[in-house]
């Protein structure tokens, strides 16, 4: 356990002044920035502008999250490839599994920080809109639905656990920075290509079919759930739907088998 703590601590040191941290900071600013602009120009007819804001933010976040994760993980793991430090790291008195899981834990920590930053920036966005036009954006009247809003933004992150485990293993395998990013982005947009073909051949009749196509690609799954949201902003979606649980179990299996492969790998 001491070895794991030390390895995790050193991961924190390694991430100082890296591009991964810039991506981490830029993602919520970019996402919330888009939402604030669109909500600002939107006609708010609902009784609660909160629902409209949360609905738009959750959809936009779900769409951009896989891209963000692919970039974040690629840059985070590439630190070792770029510095040629795998060899040195693996000559330290640590089990290889400890090295593998410490680095994965660091990425999960970054993802957790990303969610917290997203919440923080989202609330800042709400406050800003309210200050600009308190009559139109009466967010702060009647209290802030803190828990509900936080959980709604957590859902896409939970749905993305499988992406994290797969992309992490892939990034440790590939020395090149661009290759895991291309593969990751390819996997994200693959269902869109499939949809175009299916749409042209008339195989898709309604939104439900689109949701199915996106759901079975783990990289597109976080935004497959947008189709559920399309039924309306009031639609309640479970935090752990069945497919999310399945992808969660697969994430654990991929992480475990990834660590076994890492232990046997020649460096």
């Amino acid at each position: 356990m001491n070895g794991f703590k030390a390895a995790l601590y050193t991961e924190l040191i390694k991430h100082k002044r890296t591009f991964a941290l810039w991506i981490l900071a830029a993602f919520p600013l970019f996402t919330v920035g888009i939402i604030c602009l669109s909500v600002y120009h939107m006609k708010i007819e609902d009784a609660s502008p909160w629902i409209r804001y949360a609905f738009s933010l959750q959809n936009t976040l779900s769409f951009f999250l896989p891209f963000f994760l692919v970039m974040l993980i690629a840059y985070s793991v590439h630190l070792e490839h770029k510095s040629n430090t795998w060899k040195h790291l693996l000559c330290m008195p640590l089990n290889r599994s400890t090295v593998y899981f410490a680095k994965l834990s660091m990425i999960l920590l970054l993802v957790l920080v990303s969610w917290l930053l997203m919440l923080l920036v989202a609330y800042a966005g709400v406050f800003l809109l309210h200050q600009i036009n308190p009559l139109k954006f009466h967010f702060l009247e009647g209290g802030v639905p803190l828990l509900k809003f936080s959980l709604s933004l957590l859902k896409p992150y939970i749905a993305a656990l499988f992406i994290i485990s797969l992309q992490y293993w892939l990034s440790t395998r590939l020395r090149n920075l661009v290759l895991p990013i291309i593969i990751g982005i390819g996997m994200i947009i693959l269902p869109i290509a499939i949809l175009i073909v299916m749409g042209m051949s008339g195989m898709i009749q309604h939104a439900k079919s689109m949701e199915v196509v996106f759901s079975y690609d783990p990289y597109a799954y976080p935004f497959a759930r947008i189709f559920s949201f399309m039924k309306g902003p009031e639609q309640s979606v479970s935090l752990f739907p069945r497919l999310t649980i399945i992808y969660g179990i697969l994430a654990i299996l991929v992480s475990y088998s990834g660590s076994l492969e890492f232990r046997k790998r020649n460096f």
Partner: peptide
Amino acid sequence: GVMVEEPSLYGHLSASENLNICLRLKG
């Protein structure tokens, strides 16, 4: 203590940060 091939160092970190990482990993 091991040194394999070309130096394995984190270029964006300082010399003392590189050593700190190594010492921590060695407990």
